[in-house]
Design a protein around this nucleic acid. Structure first.
Ligand SMILES: [Mn+2]
Ligand SMILES: [Mn+2]
Ligand SMILES: [Zn+2]
Ligand SMILES: [Zn+2]
Lengths: 144, 144
DNA sequence: CTCTTATTGAAAACTATTTTCAATTATAGG
DNA sequence: CCTATAATTGAAAATAGTTTTCAATAAGAG
């Protein structure tokens, strides 16, 4: 997966540097949403030269290219994760932070009804489900 | 409506001060989500002594009492609006910022399916619809 | 009216993010 | 390979948003 990201970055004329590679590898392989600081701390274990500022700059570019997306949670909205290619929704574990995509919502008729009732032209929606994952339910520790 | 809020605040032992009244009146009568700064600026027109810090402190208390809620939007997540008493969802106009509640989503069967498929125990959800309100569609300016 | 204690605004502190800048380095072209 | 050039870097400064500290004030119980 991160190979694809490198290709995309290169296509857009961005150079492949050590700092960028570290950030890309960390985010693209995480099953949790990560904040800039969390990414920075993980990246430093690989490359202790990296600056937090490069994490921010890389996140900015990855978001522009729609390779990552911001995740909104009750605890805060600074975390990022891999973006879904298609229209999908999130399922989040409130305990360990694991995040999964799911698809197949059938909001069509609801959206139609609300549009008719309110006069709004509805063109997007956010749906997120919150819960406790299987691992956390059974008491196991979750892998980071 | 803000009369009820004053009563609730008093019941919890909070005093009714000019600063609080201003914040309460502004939020409880707005059809848009407002940021702390926006509230502050509006409040100053009524009471030019008020400090931004009191806006923050009042928001904190109103949120604790569940009289207001934070609104998450693509442009940012610092805005607040009246909280719905019951389980409801938001419909937001991307153009003028108007926000409405709606109810009657039928996510039950979707949630059941996802729970079964993933092993998650799902206990909450967020649903927001984004679009353009009637006023904005027909080109009128929206009232603040 | 008085007393107590919550609340206030200003200022300082803190946190998160962005900008500035000179030094470095990826990469296109030779 | 080398070279030239423009993108990228990390440090430091700047900015923005929010919280804490503090002495002064004022709400409200009695
Ligand atoms: Mn959907
Ligand atoms: Mn619902
Ligand atoms: Zn979990
Ligand atoms: Zn509108």
């Amino acid at each position: 997966m991160h190979q694809d990201w490198f290709t995309t970055l290169a296509q857009y004329g961005y150079r492949l540097t050590g700092s960028r590679k570290a950030v890309v590898e960390i985010i693209s392989s995480s099953t949790q949403a990560l904040t800039p600081i969390e990414i920075y701390e993980r990246a430093r274990k690989v490359n202790d030269e990296i600056g937090l500022v490069s994490v921010y700059r890389t996140l900015e570019k990855l978001e522009e290219l729609k390779l990552i997306q911001r995740v909104h949670q009750p605890a805060g909205c600074q975390a990022f994760m891999v973006a879904s290619r298609e229209h999908q929704h999130l399922l989040l574990c409130s305990q360990c932070g694991e995040i999964r995509f799911f698809e197949g919502d059938d909001l069509g008729s609801l959206i139609h009804t609300i549009a008719k009732k309110t006069g709004f032209e509805i063109n997007d929606h956010w749906l997120q489900l919150f819960g406790v994952c299987q691992k956390c339910k059974t008491g196991q520790e979750a892998g980071a």
